[in-house]
C-alpha cells in the first residue's frame, strides 16, 4: 500500500509540475507586448533607442517574475517532494 501511494503521489506531483509551468504563457505574452511597444517607440524616435531598450529590459525582467514563480513550484514538486509522506 505504501509503495503504491508514494508512486501515485509522485506521478501526481509530476503532473502538477507540468501544470505549474503553464504559468510561462503570461510572461511570454507580456514580454512580447513590451518588446512590440518598444519597437514602435524606437520607430517613432530612433534617437531614444538606448533609453527605450534599457527601460524595456527592466520591465521585462520584472514581468518575468510570475513565470518564475510557476517554475519554482514545479521545481519544489519535482525535487523537494513536499507531498510524499
Amino acid at each position: 500500500m505504501g509503495e503504491f501511494n508514494t508512486n501515485f503521489i509522485l506521478g501526481c506531483s509530476a503532473i502538477g509540475a507540468g501544470l505549474a509551468v503553464i504559468a510561462g504563457i503570461g510572461p511570454g505574452v507580456g514580454q512580447g507586448i513590451a518588446a512590440g511597444h518598444a519597437a514602435a517607440a524606437v520607430g517613432r524616435n530612433p534617437g531614444a533607442k538606448s533609453d527605450v531598450t534599457s527601460t524595456m529590459l527592466l520591465g521585462q525582467a520584472v514581468a518575468e517574475t510570475t513565470g518564475l514563480y510557476g517554475l519554482l513550484i514545479a521545481m519544489l514538486l519535482l525535487f523537494v517532494k513536499p507531498l510524499v509522506p
Binding site: 525582467a61 520584472v62 518575468e64 517574475t65 518564475l68 514563480y69 517554475l71 519554482l72 521545481m75
Partner: peptide
C-alpha cells in the same frame, strides 16, 4: 520576498 525570489529563480533556472 518577491525581490529575493525573483533573483533566486532566475539564477536557479539558468543553473538547472
Amino acid at each position: 520576498i518577491s525581490l529575493s525570489l525573483r533573483l533566486f529563480a532566475n539564477v536557479l533556472s539558468g543553473t538547472v
